[in-house]
Design a binder for these strands. Structure first.
Lengths: 326, 326
DNA sequence: TCAATAGTGTCTATGAGACAGTATGGT
DNA sequence: ACCATACTGTCTCATAGACACTATTGA
């Protein structure tokens, strides 16, 4: 993910510090001391969009946004579902740790991945001081073969909805403004995913959480924070992480390009539109969508077959355009 | 910044793990073990926009984007300039640590602040395993009273330019695409800042670095990374952090609202425009700018005086509109 | 033939970019 | 008077939203 060692600035002569040591000497004698240090975990919000087959041979399958969760086999939050993740090791970056986790959990390797946020609330892990450097990844559902974890934990896909439940704006006395959006996060386990017959993940059924997104804006300050206002079945502060990931995913969508990482090699524009709709949780107009999408994709000469209706042209992700960053 | 303890999910009965322990019993006997843990620092990219007085009584002062840096008084990188920062303590979040650092360094307290990214390259700190949870903050230059650090380090403002030097797109053999943008970061110390006579920070003069922003896009992967390609006078990987902060700042500007945090209580639209121009490093059209800005601000009935030209109306940040998040 | 989707054309409202024009206070 | 800025008006063009229309398949 990154480039090894920090660069040493050029053109400096060896300098000596207050103790008369050069940098080399200083480092040789350096003692890390025993300040308390946090454990840092890399947690992954792994998204995919997939749809079941439709009974009506003509209709297209509905597609839904899904996240991968892992059932906790030990305390704390025993039996709850959590984001896949693991501790960052001294010889890797947080991004590499996240990639490792992704690989272990899904078998998928090279996908879109982005660092989300580092969560460091005091007491977020009841065991000890643990920060979570959260990442999100987008995986084409075709690539997937979720393996139940080897460590007696079960991984499963959950359909995700994240909807605004209520919203309020309020003036504060000091002349500021408080804006609260209360959103409901609902995760329902996907039955048998088609692949891999075994291990029906059904257990407590649906996980739900209410996440408050509050923006406080006083005279010249401006804060934004997520808080968990209710939570059933999700471990730690992971409801907050998922909420932030969905918000980010939706935001990134507007910038184009990104949803392509959820698509297989070849796809139709309608499929791409469905992915957008599943993520944004609203319907889009066909004509407008196609206009926006066209510059991001590349025509092929292939068409779908046996669809029960007019065949549609297949596209692939365009390697030409990167959008124009000036 | 966040809401204390993680929420416990509701509606669960005490469960026992494989050892027959309840969660309470498990936590009571929990031993954190002695895995190696990283130190986590919170580093701050503190931005402001300010301008010197102009010799011509009629002309408006030019404004420039500035960052606060701190001179390192010890190894490693002795004598180099670094971002202000400090280690996160067990009883605070990374955000709180960053706020603390901001307060210590600038005396300013409640401003816009945002977490940027957590940098965890292996070897980024030659002493030991240190991650940096980087933040950026926007400070109205009127509020500032930079105090030279008490710990024998000097803090100083640097004018910042960050410009594209070269750019290349290249197809990879495997069908991917490599897009490299090479940008030059140039930091020139601001002479005497007007406030606080003492301590002219001039020393080695200008700091420069070249930061490569590479986006690799193979078949379905997509990576984005910053790398330092040259560096004079900046400690650690801080050139990378500053580069990312500027990119983020510019990106956020498009979304409106944000630049207001760099403004004093009352300001003219031209001043606001200058702030935009200083950050984006390009000129904007007046008419278009005013149209975009108007919804974000609130008219007052006050005007500038003694300007040597037509007085201009003063505005304040509007508390009404938050933009429309649907 | 029909259900269901594929794909296109066009009208309108909105907003950005560009540029020219008028207004006004201080010296 | 005149400089430098404040502020406004308007033209054009590109784009988003809305909606209607035609095209094409397999059962």
């Amino acid at each position: 993910m990154t480039d090894g060692k920090a660069e040493r600035p050029q053109g400096r002569k060896p300098r000596r510090d207050a103790d008369g040591l050069t940098e080399e000497e200083f480092l040789a004698g350096y003692d890390a001391g025993d300040y308390e240090r946090p454990s840092v975990a890399a947690d992954m919000v792994i998204f995919t969009v997939a749809g079941e087959k439709e009974e009506n041979y003509r209709k297209l399958p509905k597609r839904s946004l899904r996240v991968l969760l892992v059932r906790r086999g030990g305390h704390p939050y025993l039996g709850c579902w959590a984001l896949p993740g693991g501790f960052v090791r001294p010889n890797e970056t947080a991004g590499e740790a996240a990639e490792r986790e992704l690989r272990e959990e899904t078998g998928v390797d090279r996908v879109y991945m982005e660092q989300l946020h580092t969560f460091s609330d005091v007491g977020r892990d009841p065991r000890t001081w643990v920060m979570s450097c959260a990442h999100m990844a987008l995986v084409d559902s075709g690539e997937l073969k979720v393996r139940a974890g080897d460590d007696a934990e079960h991984a499963a896909w959950f359909e995700l909805t994240y909807r605004l439940k209520s919203e309020s704006r309020e003036r504060l006395d000091e002349g500021g403004m408080l804006h609260v959006r209360r959103c409901e996060l609902r995760l329902t386990p996907v039955r048998s995913d088609g692949e891999e017959a075994g291990d029906p993940p059904t257990d407590g059924d649906e996980l739900t959480a209410v996440v408050e997104h509050r923006r406080i804006r006083t005279n010249r300050a401006s804060t934004e924070e997520y808080a968990i206002a209710g939570n059933k079945g999700l471990a730690f502060d992971h409801a907050k992480i998922v909420a932030m990931a969905v918000d980010r995913l939706r935001g990134r969508l507007e910038e184009g390009e990104l949803a392509l990482h959820l698509m297989p090699e070849l796809f139709t524009l309608t499929e791409l539109q469905q992915v957008y709709e599943a993520i944004l949780d609203r319907e889009l107009l066909k004509a407008a969508f196609r206009r926006k999408a066209e510059p991001l994709v590349e025509k092929t000469d292939q068409y779908t077959e046996n669809a029960g209706h007019r065949p549609s042209r297949l596209y692939r992700r365009s390697r030409e355009e990167w959008g124009d960053y000036s």
